[in-house]
Design a protein around this nucleic acid. Structure first.
Lengths: 303, 303
DNA sequence: GTGAAAGCGCTAACAA
DNA sequence: TTGTTAGCGCTTTCAC
C-alpha cells in the first residue's frame, strides 16, 4: 500500500537531509539560470534536492539564507557570491557546512571552487578584435570586484599590451548587470573622441544593451562598431546581429559544482585538500564583429 | 552562544516543514525564471523555503518530483504542468498535499490556480495588427494543448472573426519552445503564398526566433512583416527591432501562487472553495509592428 | 510558574 | 534471521 517513508524522520535519524542549498544572485539572468539547471540536474540524478535561494545581489539576504540553510541542516551549499562580502560563506564554513563557490572565487577563503577560464576567454576575445584591425578597443565590465569580473578585465588589458597598445582608462567603463545598464554604459562610451571602433563587453546581457545604444545612435554593428560579449546566453545566437561572444560552460559549471560538493559531503574526510576546477571557455564568432573600416574611423555625427 | 534550532527536528515534531516545492518545466526560459522569482521572493518573506524542481518538460520527471515532495513532506507545491499529463498533480491531491497550478489550468482538476488573461491579451494583440491594416495574419503557437496555449489561439481566432475574417488554417503553425523552433516555424510560414504580412507569435522566445528567420530571408521587420509576441521577457525590449508583445505579470503570477498556496496551508479548512485568480495582461507596442504597406503585399523574392 | 516525559517516524544497535 | 529498543532534537502535555 501507498507508503512513503518520511524523509524528515530519516533526516533526523541519519543526520543527513539529502538536500543542498543553492545561493545565487538571480535566476532571471540566463547565465545563472543555466548554471542552476546544471546543479539541479546532477543533484536530482544523485538523490539530492535543492533549495533555491535568491540573494538578489544583497549580502543581507545572502546571509539570511546561509543562516536558514544551517537551520534546515542541508548537507552542503553551492554559492555564487553576490559581491565582495563573503560573510555568508564564512558563516557556513564556521558551521562546518560543506560549501563550494562557483563562477567567482575568493583567494582568502579556503573552500572548493569551480570557475571558468575568464582570463583566457577575455584574451581570446580581445585578440579577435585586434586581428580584425581594431586598435581603439573599449571595454564595458562589471565593477563587482569579484574574480570573474577582474579576470576578464585583466585578459583584455594583457591582450592589448601584448599587441603593443596601452589600455586607455577612458575606454574602460563600468556596467551593471541588466540590459538597460549595458545600454547606459555604451552611451557613455559613444561620447568618447575618437570613438572606439570595437568594444569588449564582459557580460552578454550588457552587450545586448550596448548594441541597442549603438543602434539608437544610428550606428551599425559591426560596420561602425564591433562588439563581443561573454557568456553565450541563448539570446546571443538570435540577436540581430548575432553576437560574437565567449562561450561559458554554464550548465557544466553547475554540474561540476554539484559533483564536487557531493563528493565532499560523502567523503567524510574533512582534511581533504581544496578542490579547484577550472573549465575552458571558447570564442564563438558571429555577426557582431567585423574588420575595421577606415570610414568608421571618426565619423562626426552621432546625432 | 551560537545555537540554531534544528528545523528538521522541528518539522518532525510539528508536522510542518515550512517548505514548498516548485515544479516547473525549465528555468532557462525567462518566463518561468521570473515566475520562480515571484514564488521564491514571497516564500522567503513568509518563512517558506522552496525546492526547485525542473521537470524538464517530462511527465516522468514531474512525477518523480511529486513523489519526492511527498517524501520530503513539503507543506505544499506550486506546479507549472509540463504537458497534458496531470498525473503528478493528481498524485499530490491524492495525498492531500495542498497544490496550486500556475499559468495553465485543467478544468478537470479541482485545485487552486493562478493564471493570466491569455485570451484577452491575444485578442488585443490580434486587434492591434488588424488596426494596422493587416489581413493576412499568421499565428505561431505552442501545440502543448495546455490552457494557456489554447486560449491564446482562441483569442487570435475570435479577433479575426470579429473583424469579418476567416482564420486560414495554413497560417497557423505549431512552434516549440526554443528560439530555434521559433525560427523553424517562421521558415515554414515564409513559404506560404501569398505570404502573411503579420504574425502573432504566442511566445516571445519563439517570436525572437521568428524574427531571425525573417531577417535571414532578407525581409524586414516590421516593413515586410510585423510580429507581435507574448510574455514580454526582458530581451524583448532590447531586441532589434524591439518586440511588440503582450506583457504577462510573470513575477506576480508566482507571487500570487505562493500567497494562495500559503493561505491554503495555513487555513486548515480543507473544504474551502477553490480559488481561481486571473491576472490581467496588456499590449506593449514597440518597433516590431507597423502599418501594412502595399509594397509588402507579395514580393517575389525570398532569396 | 518550572521541569520531566512522551511522541513525531525513522535508523541502528543490540537481543533473542 | 527477526524483533525490540534507544535515540535523533524538537514541541507539547502533564505533573509538580
Amino acid at each position: 500500500l501507498d507508503y512513503r517513508p518520511s524523509e524528515v524522520a530519516r533526516s533526523l535519524s541519519l543526520r543527513r537531509t539529502h538536500t543542498i542549498g543553492l545561493i545565487l544572485p538571480d535566476t532571471l539572468n540566463p547565465f545563472f539560470a543555466a548554471l542552476a539547471k546544471g546543479v539541479e540536474d546532477t543533484g536530482f540524478r544523485q538523490g539530492y534536492s535543492v533549495f533555491l535561494c535568491h540573494s538578489n545581489y544583497e549580502s543581507k539576504r545572502e546571509g539570511a539564507y546561509a543562516e536558514l540553510m544551517i537551520s534546515k541542516q542541508v548537507d552542503g551549499v553551492i554559492i555564487i557570491q553576490a559581491n565582495r562580502d563573503s560573510s555568508a560563506v564564512r558563516r557556513l564554513l564556521e558551521r562546518r557546512i560543506p560549501a563550494v563557490a562557483v563562477d567567482r572565487e575568493d583567494p582568502d577563503l579556503r573552500l572548493d571552487c569551480v570557475v571558468a577560464d575568464n582570463f583566457g576567454g577575455s584574451v581570446a576575445a580581445t585578440k579577435h578584435l585586434l586581428a580584425l584591425g581594431h586598435r581603439r578597443i573599449a571595454c564595458i565590465a562589471r565593477a563587482s570586484g569579484l574574480s570573474n569580473a577582474t579576470e576578464r578585465v585583466r585578459g583584455y588589458r594583457v591582450a592589448l599590451r601584448e599587441a603593443g597598445l596601452r589600455p586607455d582608462p577612458r575606454l574602460l567603463v563600468a556596467g551593471g548587470r541588466t540590459f538597460a545598464e549595458g545600454r547606459q554604459a555604451m552611451e557613455t562610451l559613444l561620447k568618447a573622441r575618437p570613438r572606439p571602433t570595437a568594444v569588449f563587453v564582459t557580460v552578454d546581457v550588457l552587450a545586448i544593451g550596448a548594441i541597442r545604444a549603438i543602434v539608437d545612435a544610428r550606428l551599425r554593428v559591426p560596420q561602425d562598431i564591433s562588439v563581443v560579449g561573454f557568456d553565450d546566453i541563448p539570446p546571443a545566437a538570435f540577436h540581430c546581429p548575432t553576437l560574437t561572444t565567449v562561450s561559458m560552460p554554464k550548465w557544466e559549471l553547475g554540474q561540476r559544482a554539484a559533483e564536487v560538493l557531493i563528493a565532499r559531503i560523502q567523503n567524510a574526510n574533512p582534511g581533504r585538500a581544496i578542490t579547484r576546477v577550472v573549465l575552458p571557455t571558447s570564442l564563438i564568432i558571429r555577426e557582431s564583429t567585423g574588420v575595421l573600416r577606415n570610414g568608421s574611423r571618426s565619423p562626426e555625427r552621432v546625432e
